[in-house]
């Protein structure tokens, strides 16, 4: 289904929202840096870094890829493993 708005129209509408979301991310990372202790080695930190790479890619399905990044893996043999 074609989107009724053009890309420039969407950017006009969403530029400030995107800017605000980027600022929220930046502020969260700054907050982590300022706080005592470290999160290096925390698997969630690695996931966030992987997520940022997905955002910067040219793939059209970034939202789906991010969702899969933050998902537990599916094992097609699960019924066998559960004896169901």
């Amino acid at each position: 289904m074609p989107h009724p708005m053009t890309a420039p129209q969407i950017l006009d509408r969403e530029f400030l929202e995107i800017r605000a979301k980027l600022l929220e991310l930046a502020a969260s990372f700054d907050r982590l840096d300022r706080a005592q202790g470290t999160v290096s080695g925390d698997s969630r930190e690695s996931l966030i870094q992987e997520g940022l790479k997905i955002l910067q890619s040219d793939d059209p399905n970034r939202a789906e890829q991010l969702q899969l990044l933050f998902s537990r893996q599916y094992d097609e043999n699960w019924r066998q493993n559960f004896s169901l």
Binding site: Q67, L68, F70, S71, R72, Q73, Y74, D75, E76, W78, R79
Partner: peptide, 14 residues
Amino acid sequence: HLEDKYQGTRMILD
């Protein structure tokens, strides 16, 4: 919810 959704949905579809 969240990280369990993909795996759980696939199991449900199975």
